[in-house]
Amino acid sequence: MHEMSLCESILDILKDRAAKDRFKQVRRVCVDIGPLSCVEPDALRFGFDVVMKGSLAEGAVLEISRPPAEALCLSCFKTVPVRQRFDTCPECGSETLQVTSGEELKIRELEVV
């Protein structure tokens, strides 16, 4: 379960930001997880609670957003929604899609004190 190591990386980021921005506690962490990121939201939520225990983010709420995945069709040059890699273009049927969003895992917002 690589989500545990992702949570450890999130904690490292929180510690770095706390040192730079001088906050003591994290109350809420909002993350974007793209549907093509290979991150399981429920596993990340479980790992978050475990990893944050005893840290500046203990008890913090993890809010997960799932932005849609999109790709640029290299045949008709339209940006189209995709559900998985190797989808075909819903506009022209082409198989030449370049993913432009949906692979991200990023911290979008923090609530701190």
Rank of each mutant, 00 (worst) to 15 (best):
M52W: 03
A18I: 10
A18K: 07
L105W: 09
P35M: 12
C76R: 04
C7V: 06
L105G: 14
E109W: 06
S94H: 04
K20A: 14
R66E: 14
L11Y: 03
E8N: 08
E111G: 04
F77Y: 14
I10Y: 07
S5Y: 05
I10D: 02
V29P: 11
T88L: 12
K15A: 04
P67Q: 07
E111K: 09
P90N: 06
M1K: 08
H2R: 08
E40I: 00
D42H: 00
M1T: 08
Q84K: 15
P35I: 14
A71V: 11
V113F: 08
P68K: 14
L110R: 06
L44F: 01
L62V: 05
Q25L: 13
L6D: 00
V113Q: 11
E95I: 13
L62G: 04
R108S: 11
L105V: 15
A60C: 05
V61L: 09
I13E: 10
T88C: 13
V31T: 02
P41A: 00
S5P: 01
V82P: 00
A19C: 08
V50Q: 06
I33K: 02
A60D: 05
L72M: 14
F48E: 00
L110H: 07
S5M: 07
I107E: 03
Q98R: 15
V29F: 10
V82N: 03
G34N: 12
A18Q: 09
D87A: 12
Q84P: 03
T100Q: 05
E58F: 03
T88M: 11
L72E: 13
E70I: 11
G47S: 01
K15F: 02
S55I: 05
S101Y: 12
R108Q: 13
G47I: 00
S94P: 06
G54T: 10
C7A: 15
G102L: 12
P81W: 04
R22Q: 12
K78M: 13
S9L: 09
L74S: 06
G34E: 12
T96C: 13
K20L: 10
V29I: 12
C30P: 10
V26D: 10
R83G: 15
E104D: 02
D49N: 11
V99L: 12
E103Q: 14
V39K: 00
